[in-house]
Design a protein around this nucleic acid. Structure first.
Lengths: 224, 224
DNA sequence: CAGGCTTGTGACGCGATTGTGACTGGATTT
DNA sequence: AAATCCAGTCACAATCGCGTCACAAGCCTG
């Protein structure tokens, strides 16, 4: 599967409507009532427009992160204006990059081209190497010293999110949000079970325990 | 300027009144008649209590956003109850995060610690380096010459507070207050036990004893 | 549509954490 | 030197949070 570059914008603009044409299409059918209003996409990129200006964009970003079809997409958020808060929020929601809108056709095209050139480099980057642990995002396979770790979907997402934020305490809330599970609300204690199952899976592959519990706060992926 | 973590709450509670002490202070003098009732703050965080429960909080949040002194602060709103409407309003007003109250002093302090690690990610990660001792606030991990020190939560809080005020005698009262323990009242002699446990943990990691006892006064973290 | 796999949740028990009183030994004072 | 003071340490109990299990509902697959 090709790398998809996804642009999230709350103001897609008529001018972009036919910017991408004659391409295959897929729909984010799981998006729900607050989902994208329009979706224009091609094999290497997609533009997603949403209805609600504020939260839906971040929420959409999280869902894209959780969806296996777009889990390794390159997500760019289009910000209304350039302020540090929006930037921070976007990145925290899982966006890889951001640009400040509104976008002209040429600006987007430049951006897409730049992303495409980075794509090959990104192919190599789509692999986390954290000590003995490697996570290959293209085959969705995690290994401990070449030994495959048998993971269920949710455990894989959890491991990926933890590995993306090594040496950082992640609260149970962070983890729930990071896996894109906002609806319905998840009990925080459930995270304990996730961690337990993930630890067991790693151990079953002969691995150690890189997941440290920080009492009354959350968990850390210890690296180094 | 350091990142400030601001907690907005309509129910600060008496117990938090002197939670942060002996720190530099500034006032939000532009706040106007609906401004904060009390402001308790330190170099890295602030608790703002307001009079009107509903609108004033949101308004305050917007003003903090506009004020150059707090423009890049991390604002957390404390919500009375957990409903999506309030959450959306809080975020729309510029809040970065929210928690559902009421909060205990220790819980708030822990929260601040976790937030510091997140908000400072774009800067150099928050980290104390005191001779052979390093305290990494993002992973909540202390080390002595790269050797991890196994600390329980309270010991970590104690070490952090001591390390924040090196070469300064801290009374037992200071330490109790600095760790946010006011309810219930803590016997001052208990601090002796905390120090003892902390020393033992450092020694177990092959470390020395940077904690000097000042008889009849308190303890100092010796540096240099 | 049946069967298995996945996942969220309540319950349970255990272990970790922590405040406290008591005891001890060294330091300080008278 | 005796008396007093004070810090270090230990054992213990109460509490709190975490790991784990079993179960049920959901989801996917054939």
């Amino acid at each position: 599967m090709d790398v998809i570059n996804i642009f999230l914008t709350s103001d897609l603009g008529e001018s972009l409507e036919d910017f991408v044409h004659d391409q295959r299409r897929f729909t984010f059918d799981q998006m729900g009532p607050e989902g994208p209003k329009r979706l224009v996409e091609g094999p290497m990129w997609a533009f997603v427009d949403w209805v609600m200006p504020e939260l839906a964009g971040l929420e959409l970003c999280r869902r894209l992160r959780a969806d296996p079809r777009t889990i390794d997409a390159h997500v760019t958020m289009v910000l209304e204006e350039d302020n540090p808060e929006d930037r921070r929020r976007a990145l925290r929601a899982g966006a890889d990059d951001y640009v400040v809108g509104p976008l002209t056709r040429t600006a987007v095209l430049d951006r897409v081209l730049a992303l495409q050139s980075r794509t090959s480099e990104r192919q190599a980057t789509r692999r986390y190497e954290l000590g003995a642990l490697t996570i290959d995002m293209s085959s969705l396979q995690a290994r401990w010293n070449e030994t495959p770790i048998v993971l269920r979907p949710n455990e894989f997402r959890l491991l990926r999110f933890l590995a993306e934020n090594p040496n950082r305490v992640l609260t149970r809330e962070d983890l729930i949000a990071g896996l894109g599970k906002r609806e319905p609300a998840i009990d925080e204690r459930t995270v304990d079970v996730w961690i337990g199952r993930l630890r067991r899976a790693i151990k079953a592959a002969g691995g150690g325990n890189p997941l440290r519990t920080v009492r009354s706060l959350g968990y850390v992926f210890d690296l180094g």
